[in-house]
Amino acid sequence: MTRLMNAPTARATESPTHRPFGTLRTRLAAPAAVATTVVLWASSFVIIRWVAPVFSPGPLALIRLLAGVAALTVLVILLRRHTLRMPGPRALLVIALYGVLWFAAYTVVLNHAGHLLDAGTMAMVVNLSPVLVAAGAGLFFREGWPRSLFAGMAVALAGIAVITLAAGDGRISLLGVVLALVAAAVYAVAMLLQRAVLPDTDPLTIVWLGCVAGTLAVLPFAGQTWAELQDAPAAAVGGAAFMGVGATALGFWLWAFAQTRMPTGRLAACSLAVPAVAVLMSAVALGEVPTVLAIIGGTTCLVGVAIAQLGRR
């Protein structure tokens, strides 16, 4: 009887010893995943710029996606081998389209922009995409058109106009800005397609299947890739493969993990750190800094994205 009466007391005295560690670890897991993803995504802009003299846009995309498919396949085997839920034919078709747009078209266009723009400016322009996603969600998913979205779009477009002025006076490439805007638009369409099929399966499986579809779409660059690999430094090949493993596979997996543990608005705001980190990385690693007008315009654009996102639930 004495032992039974004392047992709850013993558990009560042990609980505070272990619970704070578990709670702290749980609280830090999502921020750690977000921080890692931001660094990985920012590094991809810098690596694209760094290997631009070595690889053409198509071959760089193929190397990145082959590495990404390999890493995602390992993740699927480790995490989904017993719970893998393949989507139906219609959803599979949408995922294939999402993969071709996101992993193939977006990557190739972004690589083209990397031949013409510094990493920081490229990242700032591409990060207009969340506003486009929000607008598309209001149009296709009936999420509404809050005033904050219109205000954010107006501010973001003003920022793009300032960046275009920098291109107009020859300080940065106008074609590079246009390509980055095209990449942002393709990104937005792909993300809306991904969202449409999320109820059919889990995010990891969607990203894996999409990456497979994107890899198949860039296989026509295989011959050119093989030719460029003959003279490519090992560091450049490693950098291209790192983007596939880091930014593509781990980045999307960690971001999906954070989505289940953080409010959407707060998580969306975290993505605005990517251009800032890209600018710092580019300055340190490549010695490249955006022009003053590009920084002003890019900052204005990101403020507009923040207004549009933080005003939504």
Rank of each mutant, 00 (worst) to 15 (best):
W208T: 06
V207R: 04
A7N: 11
A249D: 03
A119L: 08
N111L: 12
Q194W: 06
V74I: 13
P290N: 12
L254N: 05
P130E: 05
G239H: 04
G152N: 00
L84K: 09
L175K: 11
Y98M: 13
F221H: 07
V109Y: 10
A188Q: 03
T260W: 14
F221S: 13
M191F: 14
T121K: 14
Y106A: 04
F252E: 00
R85D: 12
V162A: 12
S148E: 03
T2N: 14
L101T: 00
G223C: 04
A283G: 13
G120M: 01
H115I: 03
L62S: 11
A217N: 11
W50S: 13
A71D: 09
L72G: 01
F140C: 06
R85E: 02
P59I: 07
I63Q: 05
M5K: 14
L101P: 00
I172D: 02
W145Q: 07
F141P: 01
H112I: 07
A183R: 07
F150M: 12
T164H: 13
L4S: 14
A70N: 07
L93H: 09
V245I: 15
T13D: 14
L254T: 07
L219K: 01
T215L: 08
F103D: 00
I160P: 00
W50V: 05
S148K: 00
D202N: 14
R49N: 10
L204R: 01
V54S: 12
V34A: 12
P87C: 06
F221I: 00
V197C: 02
E228N: 11
A113T: 04
T83C: 01
A183Q: 02
R27V: 02
L62V: 04
L40A: 12
L4C: 08
A166D: 15
V178A: 15
T164I: 14
H82A: 13
E143I: 01
L78T: 09
Q259D: 07
S271P: 07
G304V: 00
W253S: 12
